[in-house]
Write a protein that binds this DNA or RNA. Structure first.
Lengths: 332, 332
DNA sequence: CTGTTAGCGCATTCAT
DNA sequence: ATGAATGCGCTAACAG
């Protein structure tokens, strides 16, 4: 591979001049610029980005740490992140945290050691304190899907509480009085926020919150199955259930169907997230839209703006969920 | 960030010695090794991988180019790739090709310029010739989900033909005589291979292949919907349909349900891929298992073995699909 | 506008 | 077993 030195020899100029034409910025006479360009073309020169990084202390790569890569959420998010960053010639280095504090922290350090210029984090296990501390360090970070008041400008998040409210509110508007709830894991922030919204909707209509009708799930299909099973065998009376995400809703619906319960005739179901598959579940799922791709794009924009000084990139921090009415919930 | 120099000062040894303990190989007395280790811990030292790369001419990063990041396939694949590589301290740089030849080629060069030690490619639009040529270059590549005879050892792929055969064969075994087929895009290799398998099963049982019952889809839900609509309005008679992937099967089922067709009572459906959601579709989908995660892991192993000389990593190139019988196909 | 020089943090000879 | 010296390819002052 030809180096900058080879090019300088070929063009009969100095090392620095070649570097200048590579990095556009500085002033080089058009004539020597052409000489250098010609030499580069002739030698098939390609800058060694590793060397560039070491010398300039800018790696042009941003680390993205997500809790998982499979599942319906992170794909769309990553697509937007990759596209936005790639458009500005930035590399995306990924790491998976598996919602485990130790792994998440190791991932942060792993990414750090790679000399990332910034970190986009979608982490669940890392504590607020750790993240606040990290944000004070030299490496810029932006959090997706998490709200920490102390570092609010670094957060790109969804108003989960409102989403939870909207889901339950929709059911109440349809005349349901006894509404069950299958929540996400209690140790996940978004899960708790959604639940708070559910309770607010209930309270607002003077409906009693019955702990027996609130089951903790795991955000996966199995969690929805188990939750529905528990609800069904619990003996509590309910005409509708809101699931804290669509995957659990799908699991819940599948056990209902197996047991001969008709959806929505016998039981109304509302999901959360509006994953692509939601409209291919039978019945099509009424749910709350979660704009993950938008949030991914915003995280990338945040980095572009704050780290790479791209003034073009406008950043929005909070996203509002919206109800998506389809066929899984009907009038009581 | 502490450097190797800081550590050497702290430990009272030389730069070179610290480098030696980092790279395990060389002989260092256990005593000084401990001193160095202690100093590293105390300073929270992390090697600067950029500098390591420049000095050693090994970037410890692997480029992964996939056609898409959303959808049900690439997530599980990436998870395995990331896990296997990460376990050996290799970084994963991702790029998305969007099944577009120009984008795919640009991505390859993008990854190349970042100094990746190897490339894992899941590409559909790039020509065989280009890939064969690329494989002759200095940068090792491994292909996932594609078979090119000339560079077979570089390919990690599924026996798609067999999968197509198994799906149709299952239906034939159930007594179906008129079997429709919704294929993937004709320009995708795996789509055509699956179709070949379908026709082989038909031929083997002396069943006629009716072009009117074979619709080209796009591998997405909409493709399944459109395909089924075409089939239904085509007037052709069929008691079963195999869809070239589960997403299309889900779309196809959804239009059937809307039109009052019962699955599987009125129509048997078989999918392909066994995506996680397949068992939450109602009825649970009978399908052909596609071990994407295994293939991802193998691609990573290939790189570990051939690029990083990790003899531990055993590589398998071909994977065999298996029929997964659930509830969407029954006796004719 | 262009050339000289000194590192960036580390691996790797070559000595000792 | 350990240290000193050199260079990976490039950027970034600093001169001129």
């Amino acid at each position: 591979m030809a180096t900058i030195y080879d090019v300088s020899q070929q063009a009969g100029v100095s090392l620095a001049t070649v570097s200048r034409v590579i990095n556009k910025n500085s002033n080089v006479s058009e004539k020597t610029r052409q000489k250098v360009l010609a030499a580069m073309a002739e030698l098939g020169y390609r800058p060694n980005t590793i060397a560039q990084s070491l010398a300039s202390n800018v790696s042009n790569s941003v680390g993205v740490l997500v809790s998982q890569l499979d599942g319906p959420y992170y794909g769309p998010m990553m697509v937007e992140i990759e596209a936005a960053l790639r458009a500005q010639n930035k590399h995306v280095i990924i790491a998976v945290g598996h919602s485990d504090a130790a792994v998440e922290q190791d991932s942060v350090e792993f990414l750090q050691s790679r000399g990332c210029d910034a970190l986009i984090l979608d982490v669940e296990a890392l504590s607020d304190e750790y993240l606040i501390e990290l944000s004070k360090g030299p490496l810029p970070i932006v959090l997706i899907n998490r709200y920490i008041q102390a570092i609010e400008p670094h957060c790109i998040y969804l108003n989960n509480e409102l989403g939870g409210y909207l889901a339950t509110r929709h059911l109440i508007d349809l005349g349901h009085q006894h509404i069950a709830y299958i929540s996400g894991p209690h140790n996940k922030h978004d899960a708790m926020e959604r639940l708070v919204g559910h309770r607010r909707a209930l309270a607002e209509s003077s409906l009693h919150f019955d702990p027996a009708l609130c089951i903790e799930g795991n955000y996966k299909e199995e969690g929805g199955e188990l939750g529905m099973l528990a609800l069904l065998s619990g003996g509590g009376k309910f005409s509708a259930v809101v699931c804290a995400n669509d995957q659990m809703a799908s699991g819940a619906i599948s056990v209902c169907l197996e047991r001969g319960l008709r959806i929505p005739a016998d039981l109304s179901v509302v999901g959360y997230d509006n994953i692509p598959f939601a409209k291919y579940i039978a019945p099509k799922l009424t749910t709350v839209n979660n704009p993950f791709h938008e949030m991914g794009k915003m995280a990338a924009f945040w980095v572009l703006r704050h780290v790479y000084q791209d003034e073009e990139s406008q950043v929005a921090n909070v996203f509002e969920p919206e109800l998506v009415v389809r066929g899984s919930a009907v009038r009581a």
